[in-house]
Write a protein that binds this DNA or RNA. Sequence first.
DNA 1: TATGTAGGATTATCCGACAATAGGACAACA
DNA 2: TGTTGTCCTATTGTCGGATAATCCTACATA
Lengths: 258, 258
Amino acid sequence: MPDSTPKALTTLSSLKIEPGYKRVANAIEAQIVGGQIKLGELLPTESNLAEMLGVHRSTIREGIRSLENAGLVQRGRGKRLRVSVPEMSAVSSVITRALGLKQVSFFELWEMQMLLEPFAARLASQRISDDLARELQKNVDSLRQNLNDDEFVIRNDTKFHQLIAEAAQNAALTLSTAPIGALLFSATVNLYSTVSQARHRLLESHEEILAAILSKDAQAAEETMARHIRDFYRGYEISGVDVHAPIPLDPRALDLVK
Amino acid sequence: MPDSTPKALTTLSSLKIEPGYKRVANAIEAQIVGGQIKLGELLPTESNLAEMLGVHRSTIREGIRSLENAGLVQRGRGKRLRVSVPEMSAVSSVITRALGLKQVSFFELWEMQMLLEPFAARLASQRISDDLARELQKNVDSLRQNLNDDEFVIRNDTKFHQLIAEAAQNAALTLSTAPIGALLFSATVNLYSTVSQARHRLLESHEEILAAILSKDAQAAEETMARHIRDFYRGYEISGVDVHAPIPLDPRALDLVK
DNA sequence: TATGTAGGATTATCCGACAATAGGACAACA
DNA sequence: TGTTGTCCTATTGTCGGATAATCCTACATA
């Protein structure tokens, strides 16, 4: 066999130039990240950008799509492009999709939840704002009243944990918990219809956790939440699904984070 | 003041139809997420898609950009579109950018790191593969040899934590830690040049952690890592920067996750 | 004060064309 | 045999230009 990789010249960098639409995206992104264009400001019109960067308007449009998807710009028919802080929801749905396609297992997600949620509950008990406290209270109240509506229960549950994450006032934490919660939705869809007691235990747990948070008892908040998550695991086991099998990605899970 | 929100008709859903490119993106995404198109397969050509969906090729192209950015499809000049699992790096950079623009503080990130890293170290000590063990060993060795190259130290440090997260074999965990590590890079850039002892302590810590993981001592792995992260916090404080100020987003941070 | 209307600005979509690249088939050559 | 050069075709990348749909503002009207 002849030497297929000669010693010299093995470290040549590819001199391929990036396609135009990607250069457009990078250029605009750099302006935003670098702070030359401030948040909330308007971008030049597509026609202007095309002129400025010396490419056709179609190319500009393709480049901007990338940024739009990442949440860096918002656009609308007839409206100018506006620079915006990426909505957490936009980012969350990217993560959710990725994890879903990555075929993560229930166990992996649960493991993370078991780490994050009690921590979030502890922080929430110390930092929750009056507004969020009210909203959390309302959330639990409405759960009590709609305990037999499966769809409602699941959405309400997701929202409950989302509110607690928010109350913890840590953006990185919020961003980590949201996709996990959304994905576990897929796993929970059939849980409440098969395990009838589950919904009552859910309500009790939420009430306990709420009480602990409102009374600013960090220790109790952490513990009740931990118990709640462990309960969740048992419920899943009882329903008979393999915890190590990849979670089937339910399309509704993506709506959930939006 | 007249009633600006009449009682009836308050729950009308917006009947705005989505623009074409978004419908295109959704349609293709649904096919992928739903599993009709398997990973690694080729998508129809742009022209075919245009014909199938009844829109112009330009519209198809714009729709596909969104998916490309999210990492769902890969493309290249003259090459057909290929469906792919989102690269973790693509997702990480979206998260990193979002958190950066969201102006998160060092404290927020550190708080998360303090939760995640010791946990990752514990799992890694129980689950690490031989391959990763070797790579981790090599990582620490090369740190010992390049201890005076600031840029190298920082990249090496990021990689160290990334490897441990991988070793924990939990995709959700990896995805949470990567962006946090990358962003803290921005914060660390000036640390080692100002605090001269820091780099030696860094090496010692990494050696300790490595030893704990390789000997599969979960307890020690968790504790040494926790100490390491706390050290990091002290170092940052000493350098005199306000831990609650938003982290300035260094462009290199985005390269780091790629 | 609220409602209707006109006009310009801007994005959304379409049309059709050409350039650039990838990939394969095949001949020429050492 | 294995390498190189040359063709061809399929496909993406970019372009120039056109039209429709929508937003925004100003102004008129009741």
